[in-house]
Design a protein around this nucleic acid. Sequence first.
DNA 1: TTTGCTTTGTAACATCTGTTACCAAGAATA
DNA 2: TATTCTTGGTAACAGATGTTACAAAGCAAA
Lengths: 211, 211
Amino acid sequence: MFKEALEQHYGFLFEPELMEEILTFGSLKKVAAGQQLIEIGELITQMPLLLSGAIKIMREDEKSDELLLYFIEKGDTCAMSFSCCMGGSKSDIRAVAETDAEIIMIPVAQMESWMGKYKTWQQFIFDSYQARMKELLQTIDTLAFLRMDDRLLKHLQDKAKVTGDDHIHATHQEIAYDLHTSRVVISRLLKKLENEGKISMHRNDITVIDL
Amino acid sequence: MFKEALEQHYGFLFEPELMEEILTFGSLKKVAAGQQLIEIGELITQMPLLLSGAIKIMREDEKSDELLLYFIEKGDTCAMSFSCCMGGSKSDIRAVAETDAEIIMIPVAQMESWMGKYKTWQQFIFDSYQARMKELLQTIDTLAFLRMDDRLLKHLQDKAKVTGDDHIHATHQEIAYDLHTSRVVISRLLKKLENEGKISMHRNDITVIDL
DNA sequence: TTTGCTTTGTAACATCTGTTACCAAGAATA
DNA sequence: TATTCTTGGTAACAGATGTTACAAAGCAAA
């Protein structure tokens, strides 16, 4: 039963009738960290409401080069999956569980009917579109205006924030994939950040000091 | 009177009643190339429907460094202005006329009421959100995965496309601003593209051969 | 303990991009 | 025509990032 978690994160947003419908039509999905939720090119038929944990949204080019776009946290949804559902189109992104996570999946039929029926749902969808646009703009700012050392620090801070843990368990190689660069570059810059006193490092563990 | 242009670009999208309302409540705005339409931080109270011409959407950081995000063409709207209106929030972007342009401005009150009243309007808004998301993803791909020479060529091709002219009238400095780099870099790479036979150059005029 | 795998550190070098400086060509104006 | 301003070309250099190669440290299994 996911009634409590739902109440906690969405109760203040939606009216009781809509909460009832979510309980009726939504299905709870528990995923483990690392598990893939959506693949690029996949047809989307449900949209997620995140109850706990964090999801990372990735982009990939033809050469299979990857880039982390942003994280989704509890209380968020993925507006792109909504527009995909409504347009009957395929996913432009990959979604991977960053931590263990609990998600309510809403079928496309409900999403559509709620748009006309519940003002709060409509508002939620628009807010979520706007939030995601802002995230994408943030990602663009980061790519266009920051150098790799600042991108790296920002990434570590973001990661610490969504996991709620200033200890980051990741190899330099994994971080390199997220930022679309090479392992050697990350090792080099991490060492620099350590010398500057912004992080401390051990094998498979980076502690963010400058939060 | 802008009835014909409206019919031509939006007639197949909207039902007659909605077209009537657009004619009643929308106001025609003619702008000259180079004119600024929206500034960052400005409160948005109308959304644009583009009848002719092209608008370029720019992003800026704290240091006033600029970056071109994408172009909007006839038949398009700016989904960000919609979400800004609905949320009563301020603009995250700057909009500048790339060419002379004709725009219908729709007041926020109408936008909202049409959402409930006209299915085709709702669909238009969602389609436009999705289109803008795709543009932003494209921009991210360009920044993350391409080097400056390919970004430059792509920029020239995009510019030729929205102006409908393979002759581009711009100085190297202006191009440098759009791509957030320096004039010297652009001159260097343009010369390289010319040697590769992809463009030809004259003062204030670049002709794109490889379209 | 020995062996092997994963992870990290580092050097050396290549390439891309940004910066400064200066000159030359083209356009505009006196 | 002479002068001035704008625009573009190029060299020389600096710094950031990417690549290759190899060694060392940490961990795990035999």
